[in-house]
Write a protein that binds this DNA or RNA. Structure first.
Lengths: 382, 382
DNA sequence: TTGTAAGCGTTATCAC
DNA sequence: GTGATAACGCTTACAA
């Protein structure tokens, strides 16, 4: 560098200097007018005119360097193709956009190393804050979050003493809702298709399943449990394996992708759903409504969690010294055709076109009067 | 400001100054070492040591201000929940990440005004470039793109003389592939479920459908055409309307979401797919494989288009003075159970867990020998 | 190789 | 109200 050129930028675009010169005022005055603070009517006019003439647009980077904020917020999820994250993303986007910021989406692929390096990169301060929903969580994650100069909010389970903002749901209880429902419907041999046990969701669901059966005095039959991945193909394969060695009358799936996979495994073996095998998914994504028959699913309030996470993040950005907070979203069960006794019902009426909110079926809330609509799951902050 | 404080940053984080002071060298030397250019072995050691001790991380914003690049690339799509965009997003992400950049995803909701303001905001230079896939395209779009100081690549149809990098597919021909296939299978009353005609994809598909029928000497029966939205619920509703007034033996749908909606409309009226009504979708998304029976679908190479768009963008970022380029991705038809004569076949074997690439069925390429795998659709740049 | 200093484009301070 | 100028944190020409 070292060349003197204070007028337009290198590529010829106007800067405050350009505008100021053209308006015949100092850059300070120009800047003030451009930001709507101060300036005599005459100055305002001249600057506005000059700016319009040259097509001035402020450089967001220079502004960020000065203001120490970028107006960007990041969301890191494992699988951008999983509808549960799409729902979360939409909710986050809405809150973030409403605050005038923009959302940066990272797809981590569930890769631990990648996630950690992402967290560490926060130190570069390219975003004002980050929401992360890790499916595995290590000490490195925690350390990177604590050390990070920009606020982080975690969606998902976290050690109780972790000094990080956190919004969670009780997926363990969610599994319990599904088990209760299936048992109440008279099912006795409930199969369980889970994701990897070394992930947080996988481990919690496994514990929840065993606890739920135990609470009903039922011994766990390991033959009825299959572990695969949180994906359609893996779910289908897992269901096929399970069906080859056991005779379940119900299948509980750790998410909706697995459930749709299981549905197709069942259909391709000519098992009727729900007559022969009842099916319940988790996450209550759009997929659950787009399956045929429509899937009962445990709602973990992903949109709500996203919304709360975004709110917590924005609050912390505004007030960095807040103590760590924790928000809860209660799970609920949305019952649809796939687990409704009495034949294959017709699919429910289509919801509003473009409506991102699941059309509710019957709902069995956790701490909620039966029949209450799961419009907005209650959230509370401890 | 105006306060002299050249050591750490306002919130106490180390800067080059901190490192330089600690290492006992000038900030220039510190910067050089940190960037791996120059420096005597002794200096390098001292600076590295100092940087590690204070936990120095460069400020990306300051760096951007200097380098005039942010390392961010944006992708703007209408509906982040539509699997076709998910596929595109993944492909873009891969290319972008490989270049060491990060991807910023905007969900425009198909809102024209929002899209244009997004394009205009590019002038703020917060990203190094943008890929946009508008479903409606106006003169304002074009003007904003031409005026934009940062490169824009459009995925989708564009006026031929628009001086903008562009990757497109021939969805008109794609519709033709589907019509040919259905006619060859002996279907004669082909219904068509389209999206809005005032969108580019909707208009092109409509033209394609009519042209394809005409080329076979078939007169269009307007009763067999329904227009809704590019969504599941709308597709289902449209199919229901169409079935109420006509008796199609095949249904061609403008995308896979509509097709899944139509599938459920058919199933809920006890029509067998494909025996009574053959079904073909478009976009060949994951949804097509996740439906039961699996959906035949016209692949428009969304992943490929995303990849090409990202490549074009990166090339232009590197070389801004390139003439406008245009890349093509050929459509192909992936035939699956939903349009295969001879009963409801079992769904195909599950693809690799986590495999983002659709498991190919039989393929009828456009300019390709029959039976060739649609591994990577051929792309050519004019 | 090293240090000095200019400059990226903006906002904020402080005298006038 | 206005203008000169420092500062945000970094890179880099240029001279030593």
């Amino acid at each position: 560098m070292g060349r003197k050129r204070l007028q337009p930028t290198a590529d010829g675009r106007p800067t405050v200097h350009t505008v100021a010169a053209r308006a015949g005022v100092s850059i300070a005055s120009a800047s003030r007018v451009l930001n709507g603070v101060g300036g005599s009517p005459e100055t305002v006019r001249k600057v506005r005119e000059a700016a319009a003439e040259v097509g001035y647009v402020p450089n967001a980077i220079a502004r960020s360097l000065q203001s120490q904020r970028t107006g960007l917020v990041a969301l890191a999820v494992a699988d951008i193709g999983n509808p549960v994250y799409v729902a979360m993303m939409r909710a986050v986007e809405a809150v973030v956009a409403a605050s005038g910021r923009q959302l940066l989406v990272h797809a981590t692929g569930g890769d631990v190393a990648g996630e950690i390096s992402l967290l560490r990169r926060l130190a570069h301060r390219y975003v004002d804050g980050m929401i992360v929903s890790p499916i595995r969580i290590t000490d490195h994650h925690l350390e990177a979050m604590v050390v990070s100069p920009v606020p982080v909010v975690v969606v998902g389970q976290l050690p109780d003493d972790a000094p990080v903002d956190n919004v969670r749901t009780d997926s363990r209880a969610g599994v319990g809702l599904a088990v209760d429902h299936l048992l109440a419907a008279g099912r006795r041999r409930i199969g369980f298709l889970n994701g990897p046990l070394d992930t947080v969701p996988g481990a919690v669901r496994d514990a929840g399943f065993r606890a739920a059966l135990a609470s009903h005095g039922i011994t766990v039959d390991e033959n009825l449990i299959e572990v695969g991945d949180f994906q359609y193909a893996a779910g289908r394969a897992a269901a096929t394996r399970l069906l080859a060695r056991a005779e379940p009358d119900a299948l509980l799936c750790a998410n909706d992708l697995i459930a749709v996979g299981a549905l197709h495994a069942l259909l391709s073996e000519d098992r009727r759903v729900p007559q022969d095998v009842a099916l319940v998914g988790m996450d209550d994504t759009e997929l659950a409504q787009m399956a045929f028959p429509q899937l009962s699913s445990v709602s973990l309030g992903s949109a709500d969690r996203g919304r709360r996470a975004a709110e917590l993040l924005l609050e912390r950005i505004a007030e960095p010294d807040l103590p760590p907070r924790r928000a809860h979203v209660a799970p609920s069960l949305v019952v649809r055709a796939s687990s409704t006794p009495g034949g294959t019902p017709r699919p429910a009426a289509p919801s509003q076109p473009g409506d991102p909110v699941p059309a509710p079926g019957r709902t069995a809330g956790l701490a909620r009067a039966a029949g209450t609509e799961p419009v907005t799951a209650p959230t509370e902050v401890i």
